[in-house]
Amino acid sequence: MKIRFQIRTLLAMLILFASCEKDNYTAPKSILSGRIVYNGEPIGVEYNQVRLQLWQPGFGKLAALDAQVDQGGSYSALLFDGSYKMVFPQGRGPFRTIQKDAAVKDTLFVNISGNQELDVEVMPYYMIRTPKFSGGENKVSVTLKLEKIITDVNARDIERISLYINKSQFVSRATNVGVTDVAGSEVKDLNSISLSTNVPALAPLQNYVFARVGVKIKDVEDMVFSPVEKVAL
């Protein structure tokens, strides 16, 4: 009985010591933030779908730290100071990454020492231009243009164009109260595209919705989006 008591006491002391050691670790305090951009212009994406990965070699088991990209194209990550490799997961994002050379490919290297801002330049398949929203009579409409950015052997066709509306500022495939899709095959002129969608009965009642346009590219999972806009009804 005495031996069992001593073992329990020893285990409790070890747990307490480990807890104190854990509490004594310095917490990360440097923020790396920026935007995903094309020629300095932010690229809109779907909330919580696109992410950057940051790798810091030399700290035990190598594992990626994820930095989610918000729907406006911005990201941020709380990090320890040090050197990191920054990459996009394979096949993610409505864009192609830019390869600097054959050695590093599309990996970005960043040294963190205090807060830092870093925009990540990419090549989108398409950019949404001049979206103009209007509302009234329980309907939201939009006109827009599409610019095809990648035109070489890596070019992709449009699968569909979608107009999404929602009660809140989070507007996407997963969060909407109304959507209208137009197949890419029906688009005859990228400089003249229009869509409209009906607004359902909203509870509680509100005289506005939030809207944005999304473009689905063939064989690309993530869509490119226009900025979210508040539309009066």
Rank of each mutant, 00 (worst) to 15 (best):
I3Q: 15
I3N: 08
R4G: 00
R4H: 05
F5L: 09
Q6N: 09
T9K: 13
A12L: 10
A12V: 05
M13W: 10
M13K: 13
A18R: 14
A18K: 13
E21I: 10
D23I: 04
D23N: 12
N24E: 09
S30G: 12
S30A: 13
L32C: 05
S33I: 09
R35I: 07
V37S: 05
N39V: 02
I43G: 03
Q49G: 03
Q49K: 14
Q49V: 03
R51E: 12
Q53W: 08
L54K: 13
L54P: 08
G58V: 05
F59S: 14
K61E: 12
A64I: 04
D70T: 00
G72H: 12
G73S: 08
L79S: 10
Y84C: 06
Q90P: 02
R92V: 05
P94E: 03
Q99H: 09
A102M: 15
A102Y: 10
A103V: 15
K105A: 12
K105I: 05
L108H: 13
L108C: 08
F109S: 11
N111K: 14
I112L: 02
S113Y: 10
N115E: 14
N115P: 07
N115I: 05
N115R: 10
Q116A: 06
E117Q: 10
V122R: 01
M123P: 02
M127S: 03
R129E: 12
T130M: 08
T130Y: 04
T130V: 07
T130D: 13
E137T: 00
E137G: 06
N138F: 00
K139S: 06
S141W: 01
V142G: 05
V142K: 00
L144K: 08
E147D: 13
E147C: 04
T151Y: 01
V153Q: 14
V153K: 14
V153R: 14
R156H: 05
I158C: 04
I161T: 09
L163K: 05
Y164V: 03
Y164H: 05
Y164L: 09
I165W: 01
F170R: 14
V171T: 10
S172F: 00
R173F: 11
E186F: 04
K188W: 08
D189Y: 01
S194K: 10
S194N: 11
S196L: 04
S196T: 07
T197H: 02
L202H: 06
Q206V: 02
V209C: 02
G214C: 11
K216I: 12
K216F: 05
I217Q: 04
K218P: 07
K218W: 03
D219R: 15
E221H: 10
M223V: 09
P227G: 06
E229M: 13
E229R: 11
K230M: 12
V231K: 09
V231Q: 09
